[in-house]
Design a protein around this nucleic acid. Structure first.
Lengths: 129, 129
DNA sequence: TAGCGGGTACGAAGATATTCGTTGACAGTA
DNA sequence: TACTGTCAACGAATATCTTCGTACCCGCTA
């Protein structure tokens, strides 16, 4: 029985997790269809990845049917937070404010998003006080 | 002459870049001392990494002295933004607000940081308007 | 029964990242 | 000159990630 280290998911693994989060529990066929639409990929490639992810504990599967059904083991938000904390540690010296600064100054933040963030910030302030 | 792809820096590379950002242009010996303090690492490991980073264009070096002096080619903020945009794309479906949300709700944001973020947010708002 | 469609498991090749030993160059000094 | 310390270059071993071919299994049907 496998039990590898619990580092962050790799790029390919994250793509698969995204599919599982978006579509819910899926067969290999389903996942492959979604992945393949973005980037031509062999069926067995996706299968192998999912098997490895079982080994790492990133996904669960239901084997009661012939076509196994895979499901993400950790929620999207939990994983996002893990990746964020990891990046924070590796590249931002643990400073969340520096990270947020960069995120805000990147072109990616729209005006609507800024408004949403403002709202969240007030909420966070009340919590942290 | 080397010229590899321009993907994001690897973990080991990022550690070295951090040292270069923190301490400025450094010899291999300097970088090794800093890295080794955190994690026992051979001198030639660091040297090899730096040579690879030259090849990838991540660092420059001055060879005029016997002990070459290495320097990060891109600034810390620029690299942080690149990593952030990359993570945004890979794990947050490009939504900066979701990312910031997670960053704020993580335990990593201290009260002081929240205040700083608030300040920045106002600044960003004025800019985005 | 033979063949087909659709499924899993497994091994292995190729790419990339990480680590370090060994070699050889050079400068200073005994 | 011979030895020592410091340095860069290189090759190679190892680990991990990614990709896929091949083998095999099971149920259906001609």
């Amino acid at each position: 029985m496998g039990n590898r280290s619990s580092s962050r998911p790799t790029d390919a693994e994250l793509e698969i997790l995204s599919v599982l989060w978006r579509n819910g529990p899926s067969t290999v066929r389903d996942v492959h269809a979604a992945i393949n639409a973005l980037k031509p990929t062999g069926y067995t490639t996706v299968l192998k990845l999912l098997q490895i992810m079982i080994d790492k504990g990133l996904v669960r599967r239901d084997e009661s049917e012939r076509a196994h059904v895979y499901e993400a083991r950790f929620g999207q938000e939990q994983t996002q937070r893990q990746l964020l904390d990891d990046l924070l540690e590796r590249a931002f010296e643990g400073s969340a404010s520096k990270l947020v600064m960069q995120a805000l100054s990147s072109e990616k933040a729209t005006t609507e998003e800024l408004a949403e963030i403002k709202r969240l910030l007030k909420k966070a302030e009340r919590g942290a006080k």
